[in-house]
Computed example of a mutant assay.
Amino acid sequence: MIRVLLADDETMIRAGVRAILAADPEIEVVAEAGDGREAIDLTLAHRPDVVLLDIRMPRLDGLAAIAELRRTAPGTGVLMLTTFGEDEYIARALGEGASGFLLKTGDPRELLAGIRAVAEGAAYLSPKVAHRVITELTGGRMSRTAAAREQIADLTPRERDVLVLVGAGLSNAQIARRLHLVEGTVKAHVSAILTRLGARNRVQAAILAYEAGLVDPAASGS
């Protein structure tokens, strides 16, 4: 069972999201929060697998809440859910350590897929967000190919193999099957990669994989 905490200051939005999640027997909403501070308190109380976090909320907004959650509940995945698709919000949310980013205007199936991916330790970006990020990585202000290649130069060949699959959005279990490794070994490789790259989480590592040219944006399903 995937345990989810839903944080949004709009009661109607929470009700709609809860209804979508209720259709999946493997997902359980363990708590709901109406602001960022309450989301942090309830996360510490319930220890959910995934926090669905709106960006604009009273008392403490979602962006500030991410930083606090990364410090106090590092084992919980944070999936941003918002109506705002501007690059500024995407970049800041991912920079603060979010595991994924969804738009409220997206397909409900994206919501379920995103929760499953983040619960399994993978990264998830909705197709519209992924397109925007990839566009920036391949030609915009976030393109830092030379620096990224230098940054990954010290990775071992196996770590590079794992990083490619992290960049493609695969979970540890999926990477283990693809590379014929045990899941614990993959987890150790991912931990070493994050440390070597100075990345906060898998999303930041995936971005570096794109920047370094290890992942073909056209072939990615993230």
Results as ranks from 00 to 15, higher is better:
Leu94Ile: 14
Pro74Val: 13
Phe101Pro: 01
Leu94Thr: 09
Gly75Pro: 05
Ala93Pro: 03
Arg92Ala: 14
Leu94Ala: 02
Leu102Asn: 07
Ala73Gly: 11
Thr82Ala: 07
Ala93Met: 09
Glu88Trp: 02
Leu94Pro: 08
Leu102Glu: 05
Phe101Asn: 01
Thr105Ile: 13
Leu103Gln: 04
Ala93Ser: 13
Asp87Phe: 15
Ala98Ser: 10
Ala73Glu: 11
Tyr89Ser: 08
Val78Glu: 07
Phe101Met: 02
Ile90Met: 11
Thr82Cys: 09
Glu96Phe: 04
Leu103Asp: 02
Ala98Lys: 02
Val78Arg: 03
Gly97Phe: 00
Thr82His: 10
Lys104Val: 01
Thr105Cys: 01
Tyr89Thr: 03
Gly77His: 13
Tyr89Met: 08
Ala93Lys: 02
Leu81Lys: 06
Ala98Gly: 10
Gly97Gln: 07
Leu102Trp: 06
Leu81Arg: 04
Asp87Lys: 14
Gly95Ala: 05
Leu102Met: 11
Pro74Arg: 12
Thr83Arg: 09
Gly85Glu: 15
Gly75Gln: 15
Phe84Ala: 04
Thr105His: 10
Ala93Val: 06
Met80Ser: 02
Met80Thr: 09
Met80His: 02
Phe101Glu: 00
Gly75Thr: 14
Tyr89Ile: 03
Tyr89Trp: 10
Asp87Ser: 12
Gly95Asn: 13
Phe101Thr: 01
Gly100Ile: 08
Leu79Arg: 09
Ile90Pro: 06
Asp87Arg: 14
Ala98Ile: 02
Gly95Lys: 06
Thr82Arg: 10
Gly95Met: 06
Ala98Glu: 01
Leu79Ala: 09
Thr76Tyr: 12
Gly100Tyr: 03
Ala91His: 11
Ile90His: 05
Gly97Asn: 01
Glu88Asn: 06
Glu88Arg: 15
Glu88Phe: 11
Glu96Pro: 00
Pro74Leu: 13
Pro74Glu: 14
Gly95Thr: 06
Thr82Tyr: 09
Gly75Ser: 15
Gly100Ala: 09
Leu103Gly: 03
Val78Gln: 06
Gly97Ala: 05
Ala73Asp: 11
Thr83Gln: 10
Glu86Asp: 15
Ala93Glu: 09
Leu102Phe: 10
Leu81His: 10
Glu86Cys: 03
Glu86Phe: 00
Leu81Asn: 03
Glu96Met: 11
Ala93Asp: 07
Leu79Ile: 12
Glu96Asp: 01
Lys104Tyr: 03
Ala73His: 09
Ile90Trp: 08
Leu79Gln: 09
Leu81Phe: 15
Gly97Pro: 05
Leu79Lys: 08
Tyr89Arg: 05
Gly95Ile: 08
Leu79Phe: 10
Tyr89Lys: 04
Phe101Lys: 00
Leu102Pro: 08
Thr82Gly: 07
